[in-house]
Design a protein around this nucleic acid. Structure first.
Length: 886
DNA sequence: TAGGTCACG
DNA sequence: ACGTACGTGACCTAG
């Protein structure tokens, strides 16, 4: 909508100008809003926050004029006056610095004048323009996060200080009266207060021994530094008196530095600042590029008419549908999307040209069977088809020629695995530079309703995006050298994961129930004992309440750790468990309630009528290329503790089948040996099966047979640490040793395996240069944290850069194995099925008579999945349940 | 909805 | 000096 500058109804009401302190508000926004980046990796949170604050103010002010002031780099008149007045300010973080030109570009696009003048600070420009505007009879609002601006407050000039709170942005307003109320001095006197007390961040020296309180008291009484000096002998705290006597010159200099120059020679014409339509084409484009979706709503409807929606057509009779499918058969590119709602096909969306976009709801003669039948034909005949979330659609269609169909969500995931969604609107934004309404926005209320216009629009966008993105995503994959990874691993894996989900795993519901009941009894006992020892009833599951009981009431040692109070995490409690019986009880309680709620009760609700659990295996979640499992997560079923491990007994094969479970032995360390090419480690793997022991032997220079259990344990921890992106602190925590000792271990380790150190260093260095790391199979992980100015973030980036190629390569390898194992069992006519993957482990439900055959397949395909410098060893077990097969 | 905790590799 | 091991998902509490 065009925002007209509204003429005020009453003639005696004055016009208003809003003046914004650019850097100050940008700063506020930067620190107040979590980091955001757009698809190009540009940080955008400060610009976004600035615009939100600006719009909020404009919405409530109804002003007629607007301008934004920025500092320039050049030295100001203050530098000339006072040498120390120079760049001791904190440097701006790079993430914020990047955003300054973007902010200026945005304001320019909105035709908002920028006030900048070499040799003057934004404060001076704001003060000058405010004074001039006031002289012309305008009301003035100055928006800044900086309290120094309070000296500009008058009856007509209001200083507005936004505060970002949890509940949103709140703004504190100060006219002259409010300044006096809050600070006990007038705005003009505020300068003198600041001059006396000084301001380190602004390089105002002030005078020694005078802080805010004394300064305020003196100025409140005498009105100015000069007048106070005139009454020097009356001044109260002796220290302040003598300081003022001695440093009067400094005080006066401070005052000049602190005073905003309201007569700076800034070129400013009120007419240029008149608020016109902020919502220009240029601003729209920039908002789009920055991905400010919420702000786009402020622009005229959904922006420049996107011609796409003009070509959406809803088809309701089979005659018309037949024609469409005929054309689709010959399409170069077919975009399709099955519309699935509550596990039922509600319709189909297809697109095979810029103007051929169709929504075909299931209705009458146009049955689900008709639609899927015709779609299968089309997908088998069109040169290529694109869709989003193919695995979900496979429940309803068979793909005749897998090579012709691509899942664009998976392509987009490979291109950038750090996003959390790959919906059609994400893809449109990323690959078509198009902002389209999301499914959530369109179908928010009411869900799927074939009659609604929004449903048809959603279908249209889905089909169009699937069509239009097919080429761009594949081109991008080729540019990034991931096309082979896509076609040879990720796309085939879609079908493998679908098969696994469909197969599911059988669960003995009665036994699961019994397991839960057993826990309940013990939980009750523990609860009573804990309450008895605490002397009161409380919710043991509440870390907050528990913290208070343990560390305040019972006064156990172990101070604060978390933001919201005491840490009661297991590693903290472990240290107290020996000495305080209540702590052991709590630890046991925690363990048992976890088993009960997450596993016993948690799993039970997922058992379907066929007695099986069908988890979802997600292919576009992790940053490293692993798959994830949800609803329920079957990749974190207990195994480390015996009691928890028991739960695996409820996972059983169908009658006549057994489980065959195979897991890679130290796959990540083997991957590291390979990609680093470290001779010593490779040889170690060639000669011994106990790698941690041989590591200890090599690192500590002791004969293999004399390695103590402790030495082996330490070596094992270092091996793990290396894979995680080692740090002496992390290792010291893990082994409960000092940082120094940990650092020594690491040094020795690197001396023993120099190529590993070289590899890790080079990987980090290269990641800093390129912005990403890759696996052996070309999978990328961007590491934006490496360019952060924040030490902690950057260190995190370094560890990620070291870990991702290792974890990711292992993920690639097991994916290859899964595809081949699954295919072989199907092609060789077996009844056995792959049913689970747990990162380095595959679980097969094998027909009893096929067990040996299955073992052979698992061994061949898992070991043969990659040809590394070291052998890929596996451990394999069979059993009548998952407990036994492990 | 976020934070704390804990299950897995 | 900063304050951590890497990658996940589910449940619970509390605002």
């Amino acid at each position: 909508m065009t925002r007209k500058s509204e003429e005020t109804a009453a003639g005696n009401m004055s016009e208003k100008i809003v003046l914004i302190d650019g850097h100050s508000i940008l700063n506020r926004a930067f620190y107040g809003i979590p980091d955001l980046t757009n698809g190009e990796g540009l940080h955008t949170n400060a610009v976004y926050g600035f615009l939100n604050i600006m719009f909020k103010i404009l919405d409530e002010e109804k002003a007629q004029y607007l301008a934004v002031a920025f500092d320039l780099k050049a030295p100001t008149f203050r530098h000339k006056m006072f040498e120390a007045y120079k760049g001791t300010r904190k440097p701006m973080p790079e993430e914020l610095h990047q955003q300054v030109p973007v902010m200026k570009e945005m304001l320019t696009a909105m035709k908002v004048p920028l006030l900048m003048k070499e040799g003057y600070e934004a404060d001076d420009l704001l003060g000058t323009v405010a004074k001039r505007a006031e002289a012309e009879g305008l009301d003035v609002s100055i928006v800044s996060g900086d309290r120094d601006l309070l000296q500009l407050a008058t009856d007509k000039t209001k200083i507005r200080i936004p505060k970002t709170k949890r509940t949103g942005t709140e703004i504190e307003d100060y006219n002259a009266v409010e300044v006096k109320e809050k600070y006990l001095v007038t705005p003009k006197e505020f300068i003198d207060v600041k001059a006396l007390m000084g301001d380190a961040s602004d390089n105002i020296p002030g005078i020694p021994g005078v802080g805010e309180k004394t300064a305020t008291k003196i100025i409140a009484e005498y009105g100015s530094i000069e007048n106070a000096y005139g009454h020097l002998e009356e001044i109260k705290p002796n220290k302040a008196r003598e300081s003022l006597r001695e440093h009067y010159d400094m005080a006066q200099l401070s005052k000049t530095l602190a005073a905003i120059d309201t007569d700076s020679p800034v070129e400013f014409s009120l007419e240029e600042a008149r608020l016109g339509d902020l919502y220009t084409e240029e601003a729209f484009e920039l908002c789009k590029r920055l991905e400010f979706k919420n702000l786009l709503a402020r622009f005229n409807c959904d922006g420049p008419k996107n011609s796409v929606s003009g070509h959406f057509k809803k088809i309701t009779d089979t005659a018309a549908a037949d024609e469409i499918f005929e054309s689709a058969l010959n399409a170069d590119i077919l975009g399709f999307q099955l519309l699935i709602w509550q596990k039922q096909i509600q319709g189909l969306a297809v697109c095979y040209g810029e103007e051929d976009i169709y929504y075909l709801p299931v209705q009458g003669a146009m049955t689900a069977e008709y639609l899927t039948g015709r779609l299968e034909q089309a997908a088998g005949s069109a040169k290529m088809s694109g869709t989003i979330n193919l695995k979900e659609e496979l429940s309803f269609i068979r793909i005749p020629d897998r090579k012709r169909v691509v899942d664009e969500a998976i392509a987009a995931y490979l291109i950038n695995p750090l996003k959390d969604t790959y919906t059609y609107d994400d893809l449109a934004k990323e690959y078509l530079q198009m902002i389209v309404p999301s499914r959530m926005e369109l179908l928010a209320k009411g869900g799927y309703d074939p009659e609604r216009e929004e449903t048809a629009a959603c279908a249209g966008y889905m089909a169009y995006v699937a069509f239009a993105c097919a080429i761009p995503v594949q081109d991008r994959l080729k540019e990034l050298d991931m096309f082979k990874l896509f076609t040879d691993i990720e796309m085939p894996l879609v079908y493998t994961l679908y098969d696994m989900e469909k197969a599911g795993i059988m669960v003995n519901a009665e036994e699961l129930k019994a397991y839960g009941d057993k826990l309940t009894g013990r939980i009750g006992e523990l609860e009573e004992s804990i309450w008895a020892q605490a002397g009161e009833k409380f919710n043991i599951n509440s870390p907050k309440q528990l913290g208070v009981i343990l560390f305040e009431k019972l006064k156990l040692p172990g101070g604060k750790k978390t933001k919201s109070g005491f840490s009661t995490a297991a590693d903290v409690l472990d240290k107290l468990a020996d000495e305080y019986p209540i702590v052991s009880l709590i630890l046991e309680y925690r363990q048992l309630t976890k088993l009960k709620s997450t596993y016993a009760d948690g799993l039970a609700v997922y058992i379907t009528e066929n007695g099986r659990i069908h988890s979802s295996f997600n292919q576009t979640i992790t940053a490293t290329g692993r798959i994830s499992s949800t609803e329920p997560n079957l990749q974190n079923i207990p195994v480390r503790m015996e009691l928890g491990r028991e739960i695996r007994k409820v996972f059983i094969p169908s009658p006549g089948f057994i489980f065959v479970d195979a897991d890679y032995s130290q796959i990540e360390l083997r991957v590291l040996a390979h990609i680093s090419g470290d001779k010593t480690l490779i040889d170690a793997y060639r000669q011994a099966q106990d790698i941690h022991r041989i590591t200890a032997s090599q690192v500590f220079h002791i004969p293999f047979d004399e390695v103590t259990p402790l030495q082996r344990r330490n070596a094992k921890a270092v091996n793990f640490g290396i894979v995680y992106g080692i740090s002496s602190f992390g290792l010291s925590q893990d082994l409960s040793i000092t940082k120094k000792e940990a650092a020594e271990y690491i040094n020795k380790y690197f001396e023993t395996y120099p190529r590993i150190k070289q590899f890790l260093d080079e990987t980090v260095e290269n990641a800093k240069k390129e912005g990403y790391v890759t696996t052996l199979f070309g999978r990328r992980r961007p590491v934006p944290e490496l360019s952060s100015s924040n030490f902690m973030q950057r260190s995190f980036g370094e560890r990620v850069a070291m870990n991702a190629p290792i974890q990711g390569t292992a993920a690639d390898i097991i994916k290859i194995a899964m595809i081949r194992v699954n295919e072989r069992m199907k092609n060789e006519g077996l009844l056995s099925r792959l049913i689970l993957q747990v990162h380095d482990e595959l679980l097969v439900e094998a027909a009893a008579e096929e067990a040996e055959h299955v073992k052979e397949i698992l061994r061949e395909e898992m070991q043969g999945a990659a040809d590394l410098a070291v052998r890929l060893e596996i451990d394999m077990h069979t059993g009548a349940n998952w407990y036994e097969a492990k």
